[in-house]
Amino acid sequence: MRAVSQKKRNSTASQGILLLIILVFCIFPFYWMVTTSLKDQIVALQTPPAWVFEVTFGNYTEVLFKDGVWENLLNSLIIAVCTTFLSIFLGCPAAFALARFEFRGKKDLWFWFITNRMVSPIVLALPFFLIVRNLKLLDTHLVLILIYLTFNLPIVIWICTDQFRAIPRDLDEAAVIEGASQWRIFRSICLPLAAPGVAVSGIFSFIFSWNELMYALVLTRNNAKTAPAMAVSFMEGYNLPYGKIMATSTLIVIPVIIFALIASKQLVRGLTMGAVK
């Protein structure tokens, strides 16, 4: 009896320690980023690195108001939100069709959607630049909203197809017998049931768009420049304003993390990737 409870306590303790290690492992770089952003230049480049130091908010006021990073954050937000909604709006019906309807070439079509996610942005960036230039759309939010579809739409379709497939068919067959259109079945029956998956795909779209760098570097300049592109542009080999870079990074990362934390319950429910009961 005692042996068993001893063993149990031991395993709880070791589980606790392991969890703690994982926790620290995940959080530490984030912690270091935040603290570096609160150091001035000399402290940030000090050897050995300082754990206790005088906190300064100078980097934040400088990047936000002198370098105008808040505008870039706003751009990022506009672009990420719009492209996320657009992806869901276009992707959900397509996912429903892939999950429910039978037609020739379905498998290939599904794969083609997913393939778009695999194209390296380096291939598309320059052709896209030239096309966009001719359409006089360079440096606009619209361009990034559209090109981000190339990697968001596949994710939405992938995750949502699996979610729709997991919904028992008897539900909508009953509805068909009552004369409901496919559109109604999709909207009123299946979409609400697939909501967690839709939410997860939305979260991913948002994160991917918010974090994107390559297209943003090539296709924007001032008006639509996103925050990651701005953070990288502080990286002139001439100077290492690490405090400023880390302050900008923190400003970029914190909103996504808050957003992802709020939604983290959904994440686990929606990431089953087609493992259905």
Partner: peptide, 20 residues
């Protein structure tokens, strides 16, 4: 808490990871 912390690395902007 641990499950929540798992979200942090994944959500960190890739270019920021390199800077970090």
């Amino acid at each position: 808490l641990t499950r929540l912390s798992l979200v942090v690395p994944m959500a960190t902007t890739y270019s920021v990871v390199g800077l970090l």
